[in-house]
């Protein structure tokens, strides 16, 4: 599949923002005003940047508002409704915290649940596509949620003025979560290597399996086309093994090491900013591979 930059930025940044929103929603009690503004503000800003990036993937962006209409059947539509609603609730929760309203914890819990639902909806846009066997697995939603939660936890460690986020325990939990996310990513990669195009083959694609093995003799066109550009993406697949290693080293190894040093020297927030950036860089590379390595069933016709 074609790894469009707009989509990679969308899933990575809005995932991280919603992940931070998830933690801010459940663990922001006792936050001072600075912590409230920075915590909720970063979550809303990152997710909004991600959502704006996704609009750049549209050929007719002025019609994007129509994407809010088909929530009954479409995960993309559900995502389009859930993400802005979650961000709005985070904003309301931040206001409640600022005003020391007793409703703040409840608003936070609702915002957190909506953040979780929005991340799930993002993942289901891909996990529902049976034509891409590598994506079509329950592992995909878990992968997206784990990465969003880990990135969010790393970002939360850098937020000052929130008692829970400042604790050593939370930083340790963030490290544990990130390890879990990358273990999940590793098993997802192992499955991708095994699954290919799933049960579909050139024989089932043409219905000619009874006559023997099917090979392409002549493609239907001499040049390229939309299907090949979008679904038949093969550039740099050969670098996949190296890229996986780089993603693991940056997003898992170095990010964790940096946060661990922060814990050891007692300066978690300062170290957490750079650890979060490394984690996001690793996630971005992993997301590039998520698209570039996935094989679509239509490639069986070529």
């Amino acid at each position: 599949m074609h790894p469009a930059l707009s989509i990679i930025l969308f899933t990575t940044l809005s995932g991280a923002g919603l992940g931070l929103g998830l933690w801010f929603g459940v663990a922001s009690y006792g936050a001072n005003n600075a912590g409230t503004v920075i915590g909720a503000g970063t979550a809303i800003l990152l997710s909004s940047i991600g959502l704006v990036c996704s609009v750049f993937h549209l050929r007719r962006p002025l019609r994007a508002w129509r994407a809010l209409s088909q929530w009954r059947s479409s995960w993309l539509s559900r995502e389009g409704i859930l993400a802005p609603t979650a961000l709005f609730l985070l904003f309301v929760q931040a206001g409640a915290l600022w005003l020391e309203s007793p409703f703040a914890p409840w608003l936070g819990l609702t915002a957190a649940l909506l953040c979780l639902a929005a991340i799930l909806a993002t993942s289901m846009i891909y996990a529902q596509i049976r034509a891409v066997a590598a994506w079509c697995t329950p592992l995909t939603p878990f992968l997206f949620i784990a990465f969003a939660a880990a990135a969010g936890a790393f970002l939360a460690c850098a937020v000052p003025g929130v008692p829970v986020f400042g604790s050593k325990g939370f930083a340790v939990a963030a490290i544990a979560l990130n390890i879990a996310a990358w273990i999940l990513q590793y098993s997802w990669w192992r499955r991708l290597d095994r699954v290919g195009t799933g049960t579909s083959t050139p024989e089932t694609a043409t219905g000619l399996g009874q006559m023997g093995q099917v090979r392409l003799l002549e493609p239907p066109h001499t040049g390229t086309n939309y299907l090949l550009d979008e679904m038949g993406y093969v550039v740099a697949r050969r670098h996949a093994a190296k890229l996986r290693l780089i993603a693991l080293i940056l997003g898992c190894g170095f990010a964790i090491l940096l946060l661990a040093v922060g814990i050891a020297v007692g300066h978690v927030p300062a170290f957490a900013i750079f650890a979060a950036l490394l984690q996001l860089a690793g996630t971005g590379i992993a997301r590039w591979l998520f698209f570039a390595q996935a094989r679509h069933a239509v490639t069986l016709y070529y």
Binding site: L58, R63, A67, L76, S200, H296, A297, V298
Partner: peptide
Amino acid sequence: SKCMGCGLCAWACPYG
């Protein structure tokens, strides 16, 4: 007149 050109339907179709 309603299509926003996101391309998700083309991804969902196994037949191209």
